[in-house]
Design a protein around this nucleic acid. Structure first.
Length: 712
DNA sequence: ATTCAACGCTTTTTT
DNA sequence: AGCGTTGAAT
């Protein structure tokens, strides 16, 4: 037996050396689950003689997959390169490209991202003459995605739905599927659904993969949806050497179809499953853990567990009340300065927020203070307009049937080819069974076009032909992208514009040349299709760099799986976090788990900020401190810097401890909401419910922190 | 038929 | 604030 086990604690070791059969690892935050996963795979390879290519390891992001692979190569040597370590989506693409024909799919299919999907849905709604103002295309897409996550096709959805509006969704779902296939495209959900269908319906393909993958390991199992669950089940059968690692307290993707029941009911699905719980935390201080545990413990329907650490209590959590988002940003900067002064490096500092829009005020202040930072998420590189314009050319070159890409391409730069002209070409394409991308070359056969349009189309045809030809040949991808930038006319039109912004766009296009060249150098079998696919499957989390000397800003969702010495969670306000739209008990519990995820990212120091007022949705809104703040044990929280003096604080503490300041029935006056009546007291007297007479609303307030006093 | 400018509306989280 | 739609000008 190798020395893989030396550095592991007993439950970790148990998970690593577990024999055949299903295994569930309940891994609390910071309990070393990545270590367990990598060491188990290394153990399978070196001690049990399992060939690396017979192991499938599924992670949540491409970056995590890459890291896992390189760690395992470090542990067992280069033979481990044959390991399949990837996300669900990449694994499915890989399988589908090989086996597409078995389900009547062209193996050169392209992947439509959120933007393509939205455009396509708008087009479908036009087909069906549905007013996009009455029915939101996004909402329809969300329902379709929901259906796909539940493995329902249009007929299936029709069968299970009862509501009146569902008929509309079914109709659009049909149309959407038709148009996707016509464009030889699939969406994100299709990758999973089609792979499941493939494996379910084709026994020989299924058996081939089942025999190949002798071990299937899945990380973040609590965030799997039904299709992913089925996929794991199909691939792992019949031996069921499946290891699921996860933490029900960290399930934060139910809105994307994830079903926490998958982890809660693992033992029912795999009756002979071994279960190992990892509860020792190696990341955070005792105080941070105690606070995070206290918050998440209020959830029902979770597996009871308590993380512990032997690292000692550490510092208390800092809660800062701010007037508005500008003051909040200044507090963030002073906390960063303070941490830097203590010797913490910038890349060990992270700022979290609930929604991407909140980053703006913080970024402003960081720029002003000359603090280097990177923002994860938000507008992504590959989603920038100019990048999408350019990739549209590449996409049409790779797949002339891609109508969305063709439409985008012909409109950028503007050259007199508008919707009317595209519609004529599309009709012609349909009539002659020709891919839309081939129509410009036959424009002379299309009627009703102006001379200017024919000229523009001739030009377009030659661009498409040249790019397609270059893509077929041995031209390096970097050169191909350069060629597209020139020939598309995007470069010329941006140069003419001449603004600083246009220059920035040109720089982005140049950056894409670099990305392409890099891909060319690193990929096993570089191809235009492969490059476009990599772009499509890229996630925000994949671009998190440990680049020295930068603080990191991101949403709490993006923070999953990461850790930092110092974490600042901003916008801890009711309506922001928890989010307003999380108004059901289940949704609130998910927000609470999200809060737990955020808090447990911190190793040493955790600061939480909230504002009295902030700009939201184009107006200034007043917000109460997040209820989650009230759920943190009081003695885990430090007296905020810049808060009332020691003596003032002492007085208020006395007032609070000697007698509960407020009880149901008391009249109060609040600085913002005016007069009201206390209707109830919660959370050991820390929270009071008050009905305000001004607007008749009932609000939950922090008894100590809210600008409110008793009257009469 | 295309394009540009003004207006009015909505806003989570994302592989 | 940003987007998509609408209306007017070309």
């Amino acid at each position: 037996m190798s020395d893989l086990l030396g550095s592991l604690n007993p439950p970790q070791r148990e998970a690593v050396v577990h024999g055949d059969g299903p295994l569930l690892v309940l891994a609390g935050a910071g309990s070393g689950k990545t270590r367990v996963l990598t060491h188990r795979i290394a153990h399978l390879i070196t001690d049990r003689g399992v060939p690396p290519w017979a192991i499938l390891a599924i992670t949540f992001t491409n970056k995590a997959a890459g890291e896992m692979r390189s760690r395992i190569i470090d542990l067992v040597g280069p033979a481990a390169r044959d390991l399949w370590a990837s996300t669900f989506h990449s694994a499915c693409v890989r399988i589908l490209r090989r086996e597409a024909e078995a389900i009547g799919l062209d193996p050169r299919f392209v992947i439509y991202d959120a933007d393509d999907q939205l455009r396509l849905m708008r087009a479908c709604m036009k087909d069906e003459e549905i007013d996009p103002k009455r029915v939101s295309p996004r909402a329809v897409l969300a329902q379709i995605s929901d259906a796909k996550n539940r493995m329902l096709d249009p007929d299936g959805l029709a069968r299970v739905s009862d509501g009146f509006g569902d008929e509309l969704v079914v109709r659009l779902y049909r149309r959407y599927t038709e148009r996707l296939r016509a464009a030889n495209a699939v969406d994100f959900d299709d990758l999973l659904v089609l792979t499941v269908e493939l494996l379910e319906h084709d026994a020989s393909v299924r058996e081939r993969y089942q025999q190949r993958f002798r071990h299937v390991l899945v990380d973040e199992y609590q965030d799997t949806n039904q299709a992913q669950y089925r996929l794991v089940q199909l691939l792992a059968a019949p031996q069921n050497n499946v290891m699921a690692v996860g933490d029900d307290d960290q399930g934060i993707y139910s809105w994307r179809g994830a079903d926490v029941r998958n982890i809660l009911e693992f033992e029912r699905d795999y009756p002979n499953a071994a279960v190992v719980a990892l509860e020792q935390n190696y990341r955070s201080t005792g105080t941070i853990l105690r606070a995070a545990n206290a918050v998440v413990a209020l959830n029902r329907g979770r597996r009871e567990k308590t993380l512990w650490t032997d690292r000692g209590d550490g510092e208390r959590i800092v809660v800062e009340a701010c007037r508005d988002e500008h003051e909040e940003a200044r507090r963030v900067v002073s906390e960063i300065d303070r941490a830097l002064g203590e010797g913490t490096s910038l890349d060990e500092i992270a700022v979290f927020y609930r929604t991407n829009a909140q980053s703006r005020s913080i970024e402003d202040q960081l720029v002003r203070s000359r603090i280097a930072y990177q923002v994860i998420g938000g507008p992504r590189f590959y989603e920038r307009a100019e990048i999408r314009d350019l990739t549209a050319y590449l996409r049409v070159a790779a797949n002339p049937a891609d109508l969305m890409a063709f439409t985008r391409m012909t409109g950028a730069p503007k050259r007199g080819l508008g919707p009317g002209c595209i519609a004529k070409l599309a009709a012609f394409a349909l009539e002659h069974g020709m891919p839309i991308g081939d129509t410009p070359a036959h424009a002379e056969m299309v009627g009703g076009l102006t001379a200017a349009q024919r000229g523009a189309l001739a030009d377009t045809a030659s661009v498409i032909a040249d790019l397609a030809q270059a893509a077929q040949g041995a031209l390096p991808l970097g050169r191909l992208v350069e060629m597209a930038i020139e020939r598309s006319g995007l470069k010329a039109s941006l140069m003419v514009e001449g603004t600083l912004e246009a220059q920035g766009r040109l720089d982005n296009l140049d950056e894409l040349v670099n990305v392409a060249a890099e891909y060319d150098a690193s990929a096993d079998e570089p191809s235009l299709e492969g490059f476009l696919e990599e772009i499509a499957l890229q996630s925000d989390a994949d671009v998190v760099e440990d680049a020295a000397g930068q603080a990191t800003l991101m949403t709490v969702h993006n923070a999953k799986g990461l850790e930092f010495d110092v974490v600042i969670m901003t916008g801890m306000e009711d309506g922001v976090f928890p989010h307003v739209r999380s108004d059901t008990p289940e949704a609130l519990e998910e927000e609470r788990r999200l809060c737990y995820v955020g808090m447990t990212r911190a190793r040493r120091r955790l600061m939480l900020t909230h504002c009295e007022t902030r700009m939201l949705h184009g107006g200034r809104e007043y917000r109460l401190p997040s209820r989650f703040l009230g759920e943190i044990p009081r003695d885990a929280i430090a007296r905020p810097a810049g808060a009332p003096s020691r003596s003032a604080r002492a007085r208020s503490q006395e007032g609070r401890s000697s007698a509960p300041a407020l009880a149901a029935g008391d009249s109060v006056v609040h600085a913002t909401f005016g007069e009201g009546v206390v209707t109830g007291v919660e959370g050991r007297g820390q929270l009071v419910r008050v009905r305000f007479s001004n607007d008749g609303t009932e609000r939950r307030l922090m008894a100590g922190a809210a600008p409110m006093r008793k009257v009469g």
